[in-house]
């Protein structure tokens, strides 16, 4: 994968905490497996995160994007539930009668059975997904941070130390998922901490604890990866062939996400990049080109001083 023998910048990396300098007896790497197939869009995770982390509200405007008025992840929104309404072709998939009340008189319902292929309302499917910082194995935000404010924790997660951050904003465009942002009120960058202050006490992160359907599953990353593989097989057996995992592969462009997902459509439909790559993978090559250009500039200037005094 990487030109780097020990994969410091990209490629599979067994233990990012050790790479960051923690002793091998550090706690296990933890993460999230977000199974969007069971998400009901209740936003309990969003609220729990705001409450636990004392994050201010983001304004109350209506976005026109289904039930998603949160709109995206940001400096004061560390969980974001996406809502996608899709028209589906009912001839290719089964519809489920969820027992919604209809307009017929009780007792007459046998005559009023609705043909699902003709009723537009039943041809919609909902995709809901609770997005969060991916706690990348190779985190671009952390790589580019000039102050050392962004760190790898002993749990293998990625966290901003607010008292060090000088608000340079470099981490913001570096993140391939558009997660981290700077807060206008404090000037500093902020994002999900994986509830670092709960982990130490052996607690589950607030968002996962609040999730009523276990769509957000928290735990040791290796366990979550096994569980996710099982879940995807299960769904495939049930005929949900569009189920796929996203961010689980240690061989992907960011070395695998600490927070990964089971999705029911392409990642970009949920606002996720289809093939994210940590930008610093190319950093050695960038510096080589910059050195070549710097040399070109120096030689050009020197050449301008050779020759007559015209």
């Amino acid at each position: 994968m990487s030109a780097d023998g020990d994969n410091r910048l990209s490629g599979p990396l067994a233990d990012p905490a050790v790479e960051a300098g923690y002793p091998p007896e550090h706690p296990e790497r933890v993460g999230f497996f977000t199974d969007t197939s069971v998400c009901i869009g209740c936003k309990a995770c969003e609220v729990a995160c705001k409450e636990w982390n004392l994050l201010p509200e983001d304004g109350l405007e209506l976005s026109g994007m289904s039930y998603d008025n949160t709109q995206d992840l940001g400096a004061t929104t560390w969980r974001h539930v996406a809502f996608v309404e899709q028209r589906i072709d009912t001839t290719t998939r089964e519809t489920v009668d969820i027992g919604m009340p209809d307009m017929t008189r009780p007792g007459d319902s046998s005559t009023a059975a609705v043909d699902p292929t003709e009723d537009a309302a039943t041809q919609i499917r909902w995709l809901m997904s609770s997005d969060v910082c991916k706690h990348c194995t190779h985190a671009a935000c952390l790589d580019v941070c000039p102050t050392g404010a962004l760190i790898r924790t002993e749990y293998g997660t990625v966290m901003v130390q607010d008292d060090v951050c000088n608000g340079c904003g470099y981490c913001v465009p570096a993140c391939p998922y558009g997660v981290i942002d700077t807060r206008p009120d404090t000037g500093g960058a902020s994002k999900c901490t994986m509830c670092q202050d709960r982990l130490g006490a052996g607690e589950t992160p607030a968002c996962a604890a609040a999730c009523p359907t276990e769509s957000i599953q928290y735990g040791p990353l290796d366990e979550l990866r096994d569980r996710a593989a099982q879940r995807v097989d299960e769904l495939h057996e049930q005929g949900v062939t569009e189920a796929r995992l996203y961010g689980h592969e240690p061989t992907d462009g960011v070395g695998g996400d600490g927070a990964f997902f089971l999705l029911l459509d392409e990642p970009e439909v949920y606002g996720l990049p289809p093939d994210p790559v940590v930008t610093t993978r190319d950093l050695p090559s960038m510096w080589k080109h910059a050195a070549g250009a710097a040399l070109t500039a120096a030689v050009t200037i020197a050449a301008c001083f050779v020759g007559g005094k015209r």
């Binding site: 976005s63 558009g178 970009e268 439909v269 996720l272």
Partner: peptide
């Protein structure tokens, strides 16, 4: 395809 045409990455601040 995209999520309501929303950006995927954050614009530099």
């Amino acid at each position: 395809r995209s999520y309501y045409g929303q950006p995927i990455i954050k614009e530099p601040t």
